[in-house]
Design a protein around this nucleic acid. Structure first.
Ligand SMILES: [Mn+2]
Ligand SMILES: [Mn+2]
Ligand SMILES: [Zn+2]
Ligand SMILES: [Zn+2]
Lengths: 124, 124
DNA sequence: TATTTAATGCGAATAAGTCGCAATTAAGTA
DNA sequence: TACTTAATTGCGACTTATTCGCATTAAATA
């Protein structure tokens, strides 16, 4: 299935590219200047995830947030990193902090989701 | 608000105490021998969380899982640790692995949720 | 035993995300 | 440029997890 360039795709991608935060579907829908259907936004985002252009973070609020993969491009491999969710300004950002862990034998990791929750430097 | 001892509370607590896994509401409901209403189970669990008897993990499936706090009791302070979610047997367990992170100035952490996803040693 | 109020059950509500399907349209080809 | 085809979209219905209001029940304590 070849990917096509569409207004929806480009609008979402440019929004994410210009954002320093991870965004939820409804945040994206609100910030967009053009109207894109909810289901379409999810489909666009999930395609980005499949293509490793974007990564998905599920926070303790149970919602999905999406952010452009940055470090991954540079280093050319997946970089698990911590995320920070500020309870005050309700935003999620990717931290530089890498995720390190030691696993018992026999465990194979395919993905890591790490979210710290608290108050960010802007709000404290 | 003083807490009362009720059959529901004791049943859920003993189930969690005897489980090596983190359990979701519906898993708890299924495993219980007595019938407890869904909303009640959630209320019991959330009370446990408020009282720091249990901690909640939100996995990438967006569902909430609950596990007894073990290390916390021993050391008498909150111990953030990694969790492992096996895609094969669909279970979530608390790992010993502690969570370590370095934060930029001004950030204050109130909670950490770290979930590794993959295949556990039983399933690999 | 009587009083107080935490806890429960039930049904309705909320909210995030997905799905089926018909209509649209990007992109390649003649 | 016109034609073809399959990717993409919009819409509405649906699913699933969790919460909420409210009337009822039942711990706890005096
Ligand atoms: Mn990130
Ligand atoms: Mn745990
Ligand atoms: Zn903030
Ligand atoms: Zn497993």
């Amino acid at each position: 299935m070849k990917r096509r360039n569409t207004p929806a795709k480009e609008a979402v991608l440019s929004l994410l590219s210009n954002s320093k935060k991870a965004l939820s579907q409804d945040a994206i829908e609100k910030e967009l200047s053009i109207n894109i259907n909810r289901a379409t936004i999810y489909r666009v985002l999930n395609r980005f995830c499949d293509d490793n252009i974007v990564h998905k973070i599920v926070a303790e609020d149970g919602k999905q947030y999406f952010a452009i993969c940055r470090k991954c491009e540079e280093t050319n491999k997946v970089q698990y990193h911590f995320h920070f969710r500020c309870l005050s300004c309700d935003s999620i950002e990717c931290l530089e902090t890498p995720v390190n862990y030691l696993l018992p034998n026999g465990y194979k990791v395919q993905n890591a989701t790490c979210v710290l929750t608290g108050v960010c430097n802007n709000c404290s």
